[in-house]
Design a binder for these strands. Structure first.
Lengths: 249, 249
DNA sequence: GAGTGGTCTAGACCACAAT
DNA sequence: TTGTGGTCTAGACCACTCC
């Protein structure tokens, strides 16, 4: 980032941000503030254009960018709605890009352990909260087509998801992202993953049917919400029969 | 590619395809035909709008979509150019999303083996060519910051890249994608990857410093060009110290 | 200074969903 | 029938690159 006396520019001029950009940023804020709930219709293009005193074309550009980022969904004749992770219609393993030889028809979550806990120093740093702050911890076995595919160890921050451990114990949701959406209006929008190779540990041997010395995929996943806040940290161990699929553009 | 009596559709109805879509498709064809070479300036918005008898806004939309798909690069005040993979300025491991603790400053390719070969039945099927058709085969060790990170076994179809094995023997390029661009005007635009866990084989032990029984990442990569043709099939073995990073949106 | 892409406007007509 | 988003037009001014 080259800065050529930015302060002067900032003070003297309003920094020359395009109208559609400013409008888009403001719309994001309004979504985050909860003014519109997930699944709800937002005002039409023309209404928003009037409200922001811009032309319809400019408003379109702002809204189209939000649609491209999957923050809203546009439907001709109906209107524009806030995106949602709810609804059983979303395909299983929406965010999980692994697959096996067969198509995945069913998804199952078997919870091995759920308990409230306190953030470790490292977790606190990642989450941006204080060490010792409450988190929900869980271990679950995830299966596709009745076959155990991976074991997940997860921590969810309870400052944004109060009583998450109790609620998860109660509902034992198959999909955490859909659960977070329903319970806390938190939309998981981006997931970063780091993948490396490891050897099967005792739990992999016990639950994934791995043998001692078998290789497994070890995945660390960081799940972020609309606002870019880190919500969940997971470690996955994926059975060696399963693949991860990615695409680079 | 599904074809539902395209001729009939074309004759009977104009199929209601938006103008900007038709224009974009045609521009793609012109790029693929080699009318404009990678790095070359294409006509301006207004020139293209005139040529296609559409308004500038419509032409913009077509060109903007090509830019979004990274097929062209737009620069204000300069013009629009066909994308390129050449040039040392692109960061190392452009398509390879793995990383180590340190930043990657240098990239190296040590070729262990390069030889012409014939496509196996499976390769032929993937490439969409005849079994026994010529391919270039190679094994290379790729290193970052002087540390060996992975071993790659690759096959490149020689029907589209004639004499690839000789040329690679001659130039031993660090980046294959940049090499394909320079030599054959083939732009790698998309790479699909399947990742699974495996145990280090003899070559991993010999060249990656792995021990027997160590886990490694086994990655299968399929590289496609602008036209969506499969150009290269690779198997990577990534040392266990390295990570793969992905992001899901 | 000439030409480029980036932003913005103010209209028009259409396909579609809801009622 | 009403209102929505999708397409398309024909202008305008600006920031920028290149000569």
């Amino acid at each position: 980032m080259k800065v050529k006396s930015n302060r002067l520019v900032d003070r003297a001029e309003p920094a020359k941000i395009p109208l559609y950009q400013k409008m888009k940023d403001d719309l994001v804020q309004r979504v985050l503030s909860g003014e519109w709930r997930p699944g709800e219709l937002v005002p039409s293009e023309t209404a928003l254009a009037n409200e922001y005193s811009v032309s319809v074309g400019t408003a379109r550009k702002a809204i189209e960018q939000l649609a491209q980022e999957r923050m809203v969904v546009r439907q001709r004749g109906r209107g524009t709605t806030i995106a949602t992770n709810r609804g059983g219609s979303t395909k299983p393993f929406r965010f999980l890009k692994f697959f096996s030889r067969d198509h995945i028809r069913t998804e199952e979550s078997i919870y091995l352990e759920i308990m409230p806990g306190k953030a470790t120093a490292q977790e606190a740093k990642s989450f941006g909260i204080e060490a010792g702050a409450p988190v929900a911890r869980m271990v679950r076995l995830r299966a596709a087509n009745k076959m155990p595919m991976l074991i997940e160890r997860a921590a969810i921050r309870e400052d944004l998801c109060p009583k998450a451990s109790q609620l998860i114990t109660l509902h034992r949701p198959v999909s955490i992202s859909s659960f977070l959406d329903r319970m806390f209006n938190i939309l998981i929008m981006r997931i970063d993953e780091k993948i490396c190779a490891a050897l099967a540990d005792e739990e992999d041997i016990k639950h994934l049917g791995a043998a001692a010395g078998d290789p497994v995929l070890a995945v660390e996943r960081l799940s972020y919400d609309l606002a870019g806040r880190l919500i969940q940290i997971s470690q996955l161990h994926v059975a060696k029969e399963a693949y991860y699929a990615t695409s680079t553009k």
